[in-house]
Design a protein around this nucleic acid. Structure first.
Length: 268
DNA sequence: AACGAAACCTGCGCGC
DNA sequence: TGCGCGCAGGTTTCGT
């Protein structure tokens, strides 16, 4: 499901609902999702803050941080404790207000990592994370890209180069800057790089304002669903006409991911 | 260093 | 109706 804007939306909703609450119990229904040690250490802890770094959600539970990654299909729901557990609810947190926070994940790709508050940013997985478009220095990014030999589309998806961008927004950012997804990063100019950063900020912010995107309805909270407000220019539009030149949008696999672009607008 | 393929999982839509 | 295939917003791992 999520790229940075969707995760941001989830964090906003979670903060509104569970800040200051204490974890009274955790039920794990899929062993691989969370280990027993983590569960034991977290029971009795209070959620003092919830932050986001890239696509990771950080629950601050002094002296620990529970780091949650939704991967493709992870979602959080709030429900009454006595509501029956659904098939894809794998971790259920019982909170001190009497509600349960349920982690739902059809494909079971999501992860939970427990770290210490004192150093969680400098150990994996967060230590691998680059700056987000909002903070990244375009000059530093240009230098990084110059030193790599890979397609720009691949680089935008590499969280150690720039954090928070996923497959949808990578395509949209490249269309917006008229850069062909196959273009080698070493051939990008400083101006191209600055354009990419600016486009990323603009597009991600728009998506955050819409409460996340886009393709399927996604629910960040019971009763609050992601809307389809952000108009996608190229992603998932194979064979349709380009809104700018009228040409046909193509789909090609790059780095194992579907990539949509306009061959006329986005020259190599 | 970089690429591709496979792995981790499940469900959906499609053609036959 | 059923079956097999390809596809999915992410990331890691392994071989070349």
């Amino acid at each position: 499901m999520p790229e940075l804007p969707e995760v941001e939306t989830v964090v906003t909703v979670l903060k509104r609902r569970i800040l200051g609450l204490t974890i009274q119990n955790i039920d794990i229904y899929y062993d691989k999702m969370m280990d027993e040690d983590t569960k034991t250490l977290l029971i009795g802890k209070t959620i003092s803050d919830i932050t986001r770094q890239g696509k990771y959600i950080c629950f601050h539970l002094n002296p620990y941080v529970l780091i949650s990654h939704l991967r493709m299909e992870g979602r959080y729901f709030f429900k009454d404790i006595d509501e029956p557990k659904l098939k894809h609810e794998h971790v259920v947190f019982t909170l001190s207000d009497g509600l349960s926070l349920r982690y739902h994940d059809t494909r079971k790709f999501g992860t939970f990592d427990l770290r210490h508050l004192s150093d969680y940013k400098v150990v994996p997985p967060l230590s691998q994370l680059a700056d987000e478009p909002f903070q990244i220095d375009p000059k530093a990014l240009y230098k990084t890209l110059k030193s790599k030999h890979k397609a720009i589309k691949t680089a935008l998806l590499d969280q150690s180069i720039i954090a928070g961008i996923g497959n949808i927004y990578a395509d949209e950012i490249l269309f917006s800057t008229r850069i062909n997804p196959h273009r080698m990063t070493s051939k990008l100019t400083q101006k191209d790089t600055t354009n990419v950063v600016n486009a990323a900020i603009l597009i991600l912010n728009q998506a955050i304002l819409s409460g996340g995107t886009t393709i399927r309805t996604y629910v960040s909270e019971l009763g609050v669903s992601g809307r389809f407000q952000l108009k996608l220019m190229v992603h998932q539009r194979e064979g349709e006409h380009c809104y700018v030149c009228g040409g046909s949008i193509v789909r090609e696999v790059i780095n194992g991911r579907s990539s949509f672009y306009c061959k006329t607008c986005q020259k190599r």
